[in-house]
Amino acid sequence: MTALVLLDAEDGTIPQTSRSAIAAAATLGEIDVLVTGGPDTIQAAAASAAKLPGIRKVRTAAGEAFAHGLAEPLAALIVALAPEYDHILAAATAIGKSALPRAAARLDVQIIPDVMDIKDAETFVRPIFAGNALVTLRSSDAKKLLTIRTASFDPVPAEGGNAPIEAVTPPSSAEKSRFLSAEHSSTERPQLEAARVIVSGGRGMQSAEGFKILEPLADKLGAAIGASRVAVDAGFVPNDYQVGQTGKIVAPDLYIACGISGAIQHLAGMKDSKVIVAINKDEDAPIFQVADYGLVGDLFQIVPALTAALE
């Protein structure tokens, strides 16, 4: 069996999300990766991809059409390469989620999104109902197209391999959509839903002023800032900070809950985080029941100390 993994190649580097998708493919036989990009970035991206461990070959497709991850040319390319593969995977990122279902339809295959476990070559586990249930599905399609829930697979290292690079000629197709511009929020804080790290505050922050001590910590971690509903209702922070059942549902790699008691409504919004840290003065707070690491004490001492310790 052979799998093809579509990589997101941003600025010539291979992000962690794509490396998680490669990890997911590991049980599915030999792995080729597909790197696409504009003429000016493709070389660097291909070189980065070639260093990934466990890759049979790197296939590249360059051109203006691929410079911005547009779904139409990507899907057409995947369809063209599909006869050579049993499984085609991508990380469940904006690009993977846009291109793979489109390609799957062209191949008359039912896409399987957000795969969090691969039982065997045709059996997959994925979340439904916002993660409140997990289904195990068996695909009867001759070929499987999957997007990978990246938090469920530890990424392969960025280096260690030396795979050959092979350019493919993309199929020609009429331009259907055109990239105009991108607005990156990189200078500001990341969006809550997209953040890899979230620092979140609750009633224990005591005031809008108190809440501000989370900012240096978030800066240090490149984290988004969230809040519990109590903190929002008390006016410490605006509404769109709210994490929880009625706010945003998040699943970062690291969630640091400061002064949050852990009402179930809040837990419903962040329980899928990979690692949860709780800082609370009440050692009976329910948040400790879900936290991987807990610190009992005054957050007004702990948070600055933690910030300082991350120097």
């Binding site: 509404n239 059942q245 009625t246 009402a263 179930i264 409504q265 419903a268």
Partner: peptide, 14 residues
Amino acid sequence: LSSVFLSNTNHAED
């Protein structure tokens, strides 16, 4: 609060 969760109660926030 875990009980209230099971009432499925919700009010538009604003």
